[in-house]
Design a binder for these strands. Structure first.
Length: 1204
RNA sequence: GCAGGGGUUCCCGAGCGGUCAAAGGGGCAGGACUUAAGAUCCUGUGGCUUAGUGCCUUCGAGAGUUCGAAUCUCUCCCCCUGCACCA
């Protein structure tokens, strides 16, 4: 068989006749099928890629034959780092490298015989394509979906560029498994994908025909969670209450000027009186000497003094501080001038003579613990840069903000307040636990971490950070929760409690505020952390059990009496046993349990109860354990409902010193020592068991529901309800609100590399970042650049130097290029109109073809490409360019093709299977058939050299069969089999069950092989074969005398009426008969057979069969038959006995299904004819009834034989 | 840990309440054809048993629902894939 000749013949022919080129046709229904376009690597296509394309192709061919107008295009994701790196390595230009790779890909793909419309190729490296990347970018810019921001980025030192979050895997670069990603700070371009976060998330549910796995992954990635944002304040200079605040006002101001009034109020609100806020003498014509004297004479600086200054007040402070004998706590300078220079360039002689404008920064630094300098970006007095310079000299924290009024002159300046008391909006899903916050944890990676660290803690924190940096990412993953105290305290806004702020390695820096409120009593992570560092654990939710069953069940008509109570886990002094009570009056089995009397502490109550109830009095220790539990039940003896609040204690005995408990106690219950491992089975009180479980676990956070305790006005509320109630409370107080938080971050698209779409921005000194005007697109990549260190685009000055589109002044082009995922985010739309120079695509064309009806591609894109594409689709829909909001209706992930023995294919292992090599040996149709028959298309499969032989065999057989076949007339069985196969294969292809379809086609052929068939049957067979083996099918189609092409012939429709199961049954009978005759012949050592007598039982005359047949209504249905024969009760009694009988009946269902039609005589005649061909004379003896049949040893479907 | 998907006879893989000792392929065994090998074709491929048949055991382990379970439910074990301390 000359595969190659046949393949080439048809591939050329298809192309010549433009068989797969399509145009919009309103009369035809469209079907848009797309396989994810490949990245054209220099290594070319391997069999795994081919699998992906072939999976799509089978469906495409089927849909073409179904009469759809099938858009099945192909393109190349040609921009990207690998091309650049490979090009550098090979010493070529990425453009040349890519062009060559694409050429090779096209050759390889054409050889696969796929139905691509080659006139629609999209190449992302073509400026005609990426022009529209830039166009979309500009549109996003217009809509405020693009911004630039300095940010910490993931930097791969090997790629020499930034990576998106999605491209970082376990701290490694997605392309370099061995390379740790570094964190760098760079100014980056971002797309505001988060604006679409909610729609992207909610839309997932509507993507019903996407794999559930992909949908789950996307949901997880976008990560929507509902919660509450709560404002925690962290005073910059430590606890405000302990401080003495001193204010020094500005030139011309006084102590009643706006600035001081609001600040004073804020400080007083936080429980602190401002110690000293003088009217400085001669504020309008100040003298340093005079003012200095005034301050020093009227206020004694102390260790806890915090000096807050505004403008010239800062100058005064910087003169005073070096003269102080004590080191003061803090200095906050708002907009301080450094020199006597002014924004308006006017001279100010009054101020020039104020002082010498020289400062002893070193002494200032020494005399103040913490310094903060705030600058106003729009300051109209102090020139920009002065405060920054001061901050630099003083090693101070520098803050750049914008005042409500310039120079921070308004009557409330949030920027200033935020520095004094930093507000951290903490995200939590558990506001119900707010009263249980005992510490805060800020991410060790947080940019503001060092601002929170006090001098005392600085070295500890630095040590901790150093340690984190020294562990590899892998170890970091498995690292235990660790942390270090920052020295700062946050204020719990709901009760004003001070809680320590820790830095921890387990908090994610860019989720929420990067700081969490920790509630160790009710969160396992926080619990472990608190245990490790011995931080207070405060329970705020008590497990609550209300008895609803039995005689202890709470009675509505009785009143509820609350009581503080205790349990005691009394441990045996020597053995591992615990003292339990078996109650006589109740069904209770409990620990020692009792109420706390008036004036008694819980410990005292425990001691009393233990001695009374157990008789053991030599108590070594009483320790509180576990948590408070609440239980409500009916106390029969007191006729009240008891609401008990139980505290639990572990009581250890020192000896077995023991006195018999009084009768009063022994009549109530019996005391038993229970072994530790049996306690859990013994105890039957719910809360006793809870406490016990916690005790044997060694303690854990209680994360279940319950009632609030220790939560002031919210005590007693169910915690689920408290979530809303506390949130509402916070909202009223303006310290919290309901929020929805997403894990999804904005998409950083800047890449500092050459081979990507240039970002259409020009930087101008005057105008900042200015978008290129639309008419100047595309901004094409200059070919002339040098590759080496840094961004190659920087090396072409001709290209970078340009004019500002706004002011016409000199400008510099942005040299960052776009992430390649930008290119692939909308390419599927371009196929609708790939050569349009005027628009991104014609709206009408896009409307006709899009969205994608079936998308096929690897599961590895579940979170990157597929989310970005959805984002772009939504954006373009918002621009009005398209009328749908999701890119693809159906999505299918093909399975991986692995090498021989299940090993991953790789160049280094040398097990890469190349399609051209395999085709050479077996032909591409054989490879297609084999790939598809290995496993369901979505499952991984292993390549096997032996396995493909099987496919080759069948192809060869099919080919040979049609070489010299004479067609005749079909018999009924052929028609039945043919139609059944058509029906099933049609469904299998639609369901992507290609492996099953292949089996059925094979089975049909194996049957056909031994039969005479009609030309029509041959044609139908070739048609259903053609999606899998298009070349062979095309060749044989021609061979049997048809005009090309089978590829666009009409897909056959199954004629259900011709499907006849009974024929298969006759075949089965025939087979067994033949086998039996042969066996008898062998056993009897007969040389030849002269006569065979067959005794046949009239199976189909049994009454039961008629009933069954009726019940089943054409389809074999065991259950229905069962129900028809007997009632449910009978079934229960006799079902088992009837089953064998029914089974036998069902096994002949083919006969039943056409009871009326079935021609008994004819069937027997058929058997006779068939057997006579082989064995000569056959006599068939029919029994009149089953009795007679039995007498002759014949049973329904199992004839008896007599062979002579 | 969370989410998704799995564990089927020698291997790969279908089946997903009754016609199931379970498709198909590969492997293996036997036979036919050949001097032989290969290719091809046929037969067999859990165990015991019959002339036909029937019985027992088996679809990760255990329990359950049902007249009936590879298939449904629960628990457990193991594997893969993805996310990973998301507050």
């Amino acid at each position: 068989m000359e595969f190659k000749k046949i393949e080439q013949k048809w591939q050329t022919s298809w192309e010549k006749e433009k068989l797969f080129e399509v145009n919009e046709d309103s009369k035809k229904k469209k079907f848009y099928l797309l396989e994810m376009f490949p990245y054209p690597s220099g290594e070319g296509l391997h069999m795994g890629h081919a699998l992906n394309f072939v999976i799509g192709d089978v469906l495409a061919r089927k849909k073409i034959m179904d009469g759809f107008n099938v858009l099945h295009p192909m393109g190349y994701d040609a921009l990207g780092l690998p091309a650049e790196n490979a090009a550098i390595k090979a010493g070529t230009h990425p453009q040349d490298y890519t062009n060559k790779a694409i050429k090779h890909y096209i050759e390889q793909q054409k050889a696969l015989g796929i139905t691509y419309d080659w006139t629609r190729v999209v190449n992302t490296a073509d400026p005609k394509y990426y022009k529209w990347d830039q166009w979309i970018f500009l549109k996003m810019f217009e809509k405020n979906l693009v911004y630039q921001k300095e940010s910490s980025v993931n930097w791969c030192p090997k790629c020499n560029t930034v990576l998106a979050n999605e491209q970082v895997q376990n701290g490694k670069c997605w392309r370099h498994e061995d390379t740790n990603v570094e964190i760098k700070k760079l100014k980056q371009w971002f797309l505001k994908i988060t604006d679409y976060a909610d729609e992207l998330y909610e839309g997932i549910d509507k993507l019903e025909d996407w794999p559930s796995k992909t949908r789950a992954m996307q949901k997880n990635w976008i990560g929507k969670s509902h919660g509450t944002e709560i404002e925690f304040e962290i005073p910059a200079f430590g606890e405000i209450k302990d401080k003495e605040f001193v204010f020094l006002h500005a030139f011309g101001d006084n102590s009643k000027s706006a600035f001081w009034v609001w600040l004073k109020k804020e400080i007083e609100q936080r429980g602190c009186k401002v110690a000293f806020a003088p009217n400085l003498p001669n504020a309008d014509n100040p003298s340093l000497e005079e003012q200095e004297k005034h301050v020093l004479n009227n206020y004694d600086f102390k260790e806890n003094s915090v000096l807050v200054t505004h403008s010239l007040g800062g100058t005064l402070a910087m003169k005073i501080i070096p003269k102080l004998k004590t080191k003061i706590n803090g200095l906050l300078m708002v907009a301080p001038p450094l020199k006597c220079e002014y924004k308006d360039n006017k001279k100010r002689p009054i101020l020039e003579k104020y002082c010498d404008w020289k400062f002893d920064f070193k002494k200032i630094k020494n005399n103040v613990k913490k310094i903060i300098v705030i600058e106003d970006e729009k300051d109209h007095i102090v020139p920009f840069g002065h405060p920054k310079e001061i901050a630099k000299e003083l090693d101070a924290k520098y803050v750049l903000g914008i005042g409500n009024q310039t120079h921070y002159n308004s009557d409330k300046e949030q920027v200033v307040l935020n520095e004094l008391v930093e507000v951290w909006p903490i995200f939590t899903t558990r506001p119900d636990t707010l009263f249980g916050v005992t510490f805060m944890v800020v991410s060790a990676q947080h940019t503001k971490l060092m601002d929170l660290v006090t001098d005392e803690q600085k070295s500890d924190v630095e040590k901790f950070l150093k340690k984190l940096n020294s562990v590899s990412e892998k170890e970091l993953d498995q690292m235990e929760k660790e942390g270090v105290f920052t020295g700062s305290y946050a204020t719990n806004p709901v009760n004003g409690e001070k809680v320590p702020v820790w830095a921890g390695n387990f908090v994610v820096a860019d989720y929420g505020a990067g700081m969490v409120m920790a509630v160790p009593a009710h969160d396992q992570r926080d619990y472990e952390f608190a245990k490790k560092y011995d931080i207070e654990i405060k329970q705020v939710i008590a497990p609550y059990h209300v008895e609803t069953n039995g005689e202890d069940a709470v009675r509505k008509d009785k009143k509820v009496i609350k009581r503080d109570s205790v349990f005691a886990l009394v441990k045996h002094h020597k053995e591992d046993k615990y003292f339990c009570l078996d109650w006589k009056k109740f069904k209770w089995k409990s620990f020692v349990i009792g109420g706390v009397d008036d004036g008694e502490t819980p410990e005292e109550a425990v001691r009393r109860e233990v001695i009374e109830e157990t008789g053991y009095s030599d108590i070594k220790s009483i320790k509180p354990i576990a948590f408070e539990t609440h239980a409500e039940f009916y106390a029969k003896h007191k006729e009240i409902n008891r609401y008990g609040k139980y505290k639990a204690f572990l009581v250890e005995l020192a000896s077995d010193k023991h006195e018999k408990p009084s009768d009063e106690h022994t009549k109530n219950h019996e005391g038993i020592w229970v072994e530790k491992n049996k306690v859990s089975g013994f105890i039957n009180l719910e809360n006793n068991r809870l406490v016990w479980n916690d005790y044997i676990k060694g303690g854990a956070a209680y994360t279940e529901n319950g009632k609030l305790i220790n939560s002031s006005e919210f005590d007693g509320i169910n915690n689920r309800e408290a979530i809303d109630k506390i949130t509402l409370h916070l909202k009223k107080q303006k310290i919290g609100k309901k929020v929805i938080n997403f894990k999804l971050r904005d998409w950083g698209i800047s890449r500092q590399r050459y081979w990507g779409t240039p970002i259409p921005i020009i930087h101008c000194e005057k105008c900042g970042a200015v978008p290129v005007s639309e008419k100047d697109l595309p901004i094409a990549l200059p070919k002339d650049v040098e590759f080496g260190e840094g961004n190659p685009l920087e090396t072409n000055e001709k290209w970078t130097k340009t004019k500002c589109p706004k002011c016409g002044g000199s400008g510099k082009r942005e040299t960052d290029t776009m992430d390649t995922f930008v290119n692939s985010s909308w390419y599927f739309l371009r196929y609708a109109d790939p050569n349009n120079d005027k628009e991104i695509f014609d709206k009408k064309k896009a409307k006709y073809w899009c969205p994608i009806d079936q998308y096929v591609g690897g599961a590895e894109h579940a979170c990157m490409h597929l989310i970005y594409s959805r984002f772009y689709t939504k954006f373009l829909a918002d621009l009005g360019l398209i009328n749908f909001r999701e890119p693809a209706k159906k999505l299918f992930h093909q399975g991986m093709l692995q090498g021989e023995g299940g090993v991953k294919m790789s160049k280094s292992k040398g097990n890469v299977v190349l399609p051209e090599v395999v085709s050479e040996k077996y032909g591409i149709d054989t490879s297609r058939l084999f790939l598809l028959s290995l496993a369901a298309p979505d499952k991984p499969r292993d390549w096997s050299e032996k396995g493909i032989q099987g496919s080759l065999r069948i192809i060869q057989k099919i080919f040979d069969y049609f070489q010299d076949t004479k067609f005749g007339k079909d018999n009924e069985k052929t028609l039945s089999k043919l139609n059944k196969t058509i029906k099933e294969v049609t469904l299998d292809i639609e369901d992507f069950a290609y492996n099953l379809a292949v089996i059925k086609i094979r089975q049909l052929f194996e049957y056909i092989e031994g039969e005479t068939i009609s030309k029509d049957t041959a044609e139908k067979f070739l048609k259903i074969l053609s999606p899998f083996c298009p070349h062979i099918a095309e060749e044989l189609w021609e061979k049997i005398g048809n005009k090309p092409f089978i590829s666009n012939a009409k897909w056959p429709k199954a004629n259900e009426k011709l499907i006849d199961e009974k024929l298969e049954k006759i075949e089965g009978v025939l087979d067994t008969l033949r086998g039996d005759i042969l066996k008898i012949k062998e056993l009897a050592k007969l040389d030849s057979v002269s006569k065979v007598k067959i005794f046949v039982a009239p199976a189909w005359k049994w009454d039961a069969l008629a009933i069954v047949k009726k019940a089943c209504d054409g389809k074999p249905d065991f259950g229905a038959a069962m129900k028809a024969l007997m009632s449910k009760d009978e079934m229960k009694k006799q079902g088992k006995a009837v089953q064998p009988f029914l089974k036998a009946v069902m096994s002949r269902f083919g006969e039943l299904s056409d009871l009326e039609k079935f021609d008994e005589v004819k069937a027997i005649e058929e058997v006779k004819v068939a057997l006579e061909k082989e064995f000569g004379s056959i006599e068939i003896i029919k029994a009149e009834n089953s009795k007679e049949a039995k007498a002759n040893n014949a049973f329904p479907g199992k004839p008896a034989l007599l062979v002579e």
